[in-house]
């Protein structure tokens, strides 16, 4: 970690527009949970909370979007406008820059997503038991956010169109292709996150059944973080400024 870099990144990421956008997005699952609690839903709370609220809204939509927004901006926005030079022309090993940026992007993502997970989860499940559902998804979201942020950060060093590439990955690959071809699920951070959540929540397969086993998910998550992190550092060590256009 490098504190000045981390501080700067935090101020960079939490500008007004981004914060408002993320706050609105994070509010969606909370509102839904409130509607579930005080409305007339027929589904079983644990069923609904894990399959709908957590899996569909938080893990499949909120988590990747938040990670995409923060992960690609943490270093990518500076590479885009040329200010990255002010960080890179300093006697700091580049891996420290990557790690500092990554940790901040990750923590900011987690702050929004975890808040939504815990508040919405407690709202939906309070008094129903199944506290492990909230714990499971909370832990899974923290781990998933790290994997997503690492991948998107590395992507933002590799290409200036990282945001679009990330959108395609999340919505075409994870949203469409993995639904059509089961084998591709081992290459989906969403599935790792769900696998880890199901493992910790230890629900009966009838209630919630992720595609991947917990241990497998954890190993794959770790591999993704390490590989993407290593790629990101390598790319930044060989960072070249474009022609000054």
């Amino acid at each position: 970690m490098n504190w000045p870099v981390a501080q700067l990144t935090l101020r960079l990421l939490l500008n007004q527009k981004r914060t408002v956008l993320l706050a609105v997005l994070a509010l969606v699952p909370v509102l839904l949970a409130a509607v579930f609690r005080w409305g007339s839903f027929e589904e079983h709370p644990a069923d609904w909370a894990s399959n709908r609220l957590m899996a569909q809204i938080i893990v499949a939509a909120l988590l990747p979007l938040a990670a995409l927004i923060f992960g690609t901006a943490a270093l990518g926005s500076e590479i885009d406008d040329g200010t990255a030079v002010y960080l890179l022309a300093k006697p700091i090993p580049r891996w420290r820059v990557v790690v500092s940026k990554l940790v901040v992007a990750w923590l900011v993502t987690v702050a929004f997503v975890l808040m939504a997970t815990v508040v919405a989860g407690v709202l939906a499940l309070a008094g129903e038991g199944h506290a492990l559902v909230v714990v499971g998804f909370a832990v899974a979201v923290i781990a998933g956010a790290l994997a997503y942020c690492t991948v998107f950060l590395a992507l933002s060093v590799a290409t200036s169109r990282a945001f679009l590439a990330g959108l395609v990955y999340v919505f075409i690959w994870e949203g469409l292709v993995t639904g059509l071809f089961e084998g591709t699920r081992v290459l989906s951070i969403r599935e790792y996150t769900l696998g880890l959540a199901g493992w910790i929540a230890s629900l009966s397969p009838k209630t919630f059944e992720p595609e991947l086993a917990g241990g497998q998910s954890l190993v794959l998550l770790a591999i993704v973080c390490l590989v993407a992190g290593w790629v990101g550092v390598r790319l930044l060590q060989r960072f070249e400024t474009g022609e000054s256009s």
Binding site: D81, V85, A89, K90, P91
Partner: peptide, 13 residues
């Protein structure tokens, strides 16, 4: 990067 200890850079952008 350690060489930047002795380099000051004023970019064009």
């Amino acid at each position: 990067p350690s060489v930047y200890r002795e380099i000051g850079l004023v970019p064009e952008r």
